[in-house]
């Protein structure tokens, strides 16, 4: 085999490791999938109706929840990498003749698979609640692509934070901080309903851009257009920073 073939084989082995862990802990997987559904139901029905949203709230909320669940994926990635680092199992991987990046590639592949599953579940639940979209296949796939791009950026932030901080206490801090970060957005309410400075922050939030772009692609009535560019550029900018940082950090574990 060539070194590229080895790298692919090793990455696939590492991905399968994660899948085997799902098989061992189906309850944890289900909780992860159900959590965004719970948020959707809570905000859609229990708290009910976003401020300043006219018309169908589920139609407005769903793209936001999809984007939010992608952003919250940062936690899951960070927890998994932190656990590995603290268990010594990464030391074994690094002392083996395997491809250097396979540990990180396997992690990101598995997390992306879980995110696809998460999107399917959220969309399925929404459909069961009566949600429909006019989006054609192209627009629909474009929306899914933007969501996964956001998830991919968050994934590398998660890996980087885990490699830098690497302690369970830091995971807790991040688990708390993702909430204001997630909520200071246009996921639940339109920015016009917020005080000026808050609206500015919410508009700048990358989650908001992805959510708005998805609303537009799904054909939600009254959706603002023109967010697609930012929904691509924000994640790419985050990746441009955190991907090399994380890779460098991983390579420097030997320093």
């Amino acid at each position: 085999m060539t070194s590229t073939a080895y790298a692919l084989a090793d990455s696939w082995t590492m991905t399968r490791r994660e899948l085997a862990r799902w098989g061992r802990q189906p309850a944890a997987v289900v909780v992860n999938l159900v959590f965004p559904v719970m948020l959707l139901l809570m905000f859609g029905y229990l708290i009910g109706g976003g401020r300043g949203v006219s018309g169908d709230y589920l139609g407005y909320l769903l793209p936001g929840m999809l984007a939010l669940s992608m952003a919250f994926g940062l936690e899951g990635t960070m927890i998994a990498v932190t656990q590995d680092m603290n268990k010594g199992v990464v030391d074994r991987f690094r002392s083996m003749p395997m491809a250097d990046g396979a540990v990180l590639v396997g992690r990101s592949a598995a997390d992306m698979l879980q995110s696809v599953l998460g999107l399917v579940v959220l969309l399925g639940v929404a459909a069961a609640l009566g949600w429909r979209t006019d989006a054609g296949p192209g627009a629909f796939l474009g929306a899914v692509g933007l969501l996964l791009l956001l998830r991919f950026a968050m994934l590398w932030i998660g890996i980087h934070l885990a490699l830098v901080a690497g302690k369970p206490e830091m995971v807790q801090a991040v688990q708390i901080l993702v909430w204001p970060f997630g909520f200071l957005s246009t996921v639940f309410a339109v920015p016009e309903s917020m005080p000026g400075w808050l609206a500015t922050v919410a508009r700048w939030n990358p989650i908001s851009h992805t959510a708005a772009a998805v609303r537009d692609l799904f054909g939600v009535p009254g959706a603002e257009s023109g967010h697609a560019g930012a929904a691509v550029l924000w994640p790419l900018a985050l990746l441009a920073v955190f991907f090399p940082l994380a890779v460098r950090r991983f390579a420097r574990l030997s320093r």
Partner: peptide, 24 residues
């Protein structure tokens, strides 16, 4: 190593198979 370098959530056989595959 000093700390068990194993995947705690996987079974014993799964661990050994994983490392065997990574040894190609």
């Amino acid at each position: 190593g000093q700390h068990a370098a194993l995947d705690e959530e996987l079974g014993g056989r799964q661990n050994l198979e994983l490392f065997g595959r990574l040894h190609h």
